[in-house]
Write a protein that binds this DNA or RNA. Structure first.
Lengths: 255, 255
DNA sequence: TCTTCATTGTATCGGGATGATACAATGAAG
DNA sequence: CTTCATTGTATCATCCCGATACAATGAAGA
């Protein structure tokens, strides 16, 4: 592994708000497992979440979307801010460059490095198959890791993952966001697996299907799923118009 | 009005993270109206939300609780972080001291003032009667203002109020937080008024009462409300143990 | 003292959603 | 042609919700 881009601390400081960053926890589902995208900043130190400082001309959402784009190649993704992590000692630049003892990451003496960094936690839902994990501007490489096999990460990033999962579960309970983990066209059994994997409990098939259809926000397509050795399930697609119409009628999507 | 404490910029800079602050939107209900605590920083400029920078040894929640204590005298209050406000141009220290043109608020030349400030939005629920609005460390004085009579505030504080109200409504829909606006002992009709005022719509009395009692998180006291010219309603009290027990059973408190 | 009246606690009733169960239809594998 | 896992949908008892009704209460007023 090699840095795909030379990291220039002076440039970084000049263009960013060094004291506030973002850390999106990017979820996907593959092989019946919930996975999180984990970044390798440098192979000699602990892995971390994708993330970065907020650039001087961006707001927090812009920064989170940019980091997402950098680490997955994707834009226009479900992304939600859930909490700020603000412990005074949660982060220090010195931790990183002390471990590395390398000029590349060591801030020049004449730059005023903050002794404290805040980060805004986001969680994102992406379709596993559309992602080609890459490194961000700083990260060397990213990889999918099972949610229950996440190693010890840098700083408070393990806490951020835990809280992101809590936030995801809460959000899934109140908003129909599960489809974001699937391709555009999906079947009801596939959607059910998403719910079961995230909530970590089995659901009754017939009742799940009935509830989803009653919400009236998924449109049934003409085609059915191909290549299955049993009855071919219908394909559905999330319909934003129907969703917003239902919202206006005062509908709620509590699970 | 006079400043209750001399503001010392050098001291302020020394002890704070200048680039990240908190702004709690403090709600209460009085005379059938939802009110927000609005602070006067200086009578010559626009009013604002209570708020302040995060001190060097605090996390964000600590800072929000401190500001809350400073402006209401209250501790141990319902307080919830809901969003970060991060537009690059949302705030500048120069806006304030340019409007004032006063040495007190003008940062000394030798201090490096950030050109950008983030703020973490909180909303808080307090019982109107227990609050004696005071000034914070910087604020001169605070006052309760009807939610629909809020004047033009500093920076993006009007947006913060709007978003706080949205967050409050959403939270009230999913969690039983309304009682925080009432005294410790309250009646069901009083609780119903809280819901009606926040959600801004009338509710059916009998059904409201039934739902609240079915939740099983409010314990009925022996006493009844005194001094009413009709049937004396029962008094209730939120029971944290019952609430957590219900949560464990998987109950939800969707309204 | 008695009547009035607004308010409160609770019961009831029909409609709609929910959990549990059943069953016919489907389509590749053998 | 049979097998078998899976899917779409129906059914039924139960629970929750909105709407309505009614007796009980207690201060105010006659």
């Amino acid at each position: 592994m090699a840095t795909n881009q030379k990291f220039n601390f002076k440039n970084y400081v000049k263009n960013t708000s060094l004291t506030v960053g973002v850390n999106p926890v990017i979820f996907s589902v593959s092989e019946d497992k919930l996975k999180v995208l984990i970044a390798t900043f440098d192979p000699r130190i602990k892995k971390s979440l994708p993330g970065g400082a907020i650039l001087k001309n961006e707001n927090a959402d812009d920064a989170a979307n940019r980091v997402l784009k950098e680490s997955t190649g994707l834009g226009d993704i479900f992304l939600k801010q859930f909490r700020v992590f603000s412990e005074p000692d949660r982060f220090s630049y010195s931790t990183v460059y002390n471990e590395l003892r390398e000029e590349t990451y060591k801030p020049p003496e004449d730059i005023d490095i903050p002794d404290r960094v805040f980060t805004i936690g986001y969680f994102a839902l992406v379709n596993f198959d559309t992602v080609q994990p890459t490194g961000g501007i700083i990260n060397i490489m990213s990889e999918w890791v099972d949610i229950d096999a996440i190693p010890e990460l840098m700083f408070d990033h393990n806490l951020i993952v835990t809280e992101a999962l809590n936030a995801l579960r809460k959000e899934l309970f109140f908003e129909p966001i599960g489809y974001n983990l699937l391709p555009e066209k999906f079947t009801m059994p596939e959607l059910q697996r998403i719910y079961e994997i995230i909530l970590d409990k089995p659901l009754t098939r017939s009742n799940f299907q009935r509830k989803m259809l009653n919400w009236g926000i998924y449109e049934r397509l003409e085609e059915r799923k191909e290549g299955v050795s049993h009855k071919r399930p219908f394909l559905y697609r999330f319909n934003k118009d129907k969703y917003e119409e239902a919202l206006k009628r005062g509908a709620n999507f509590c699970f």
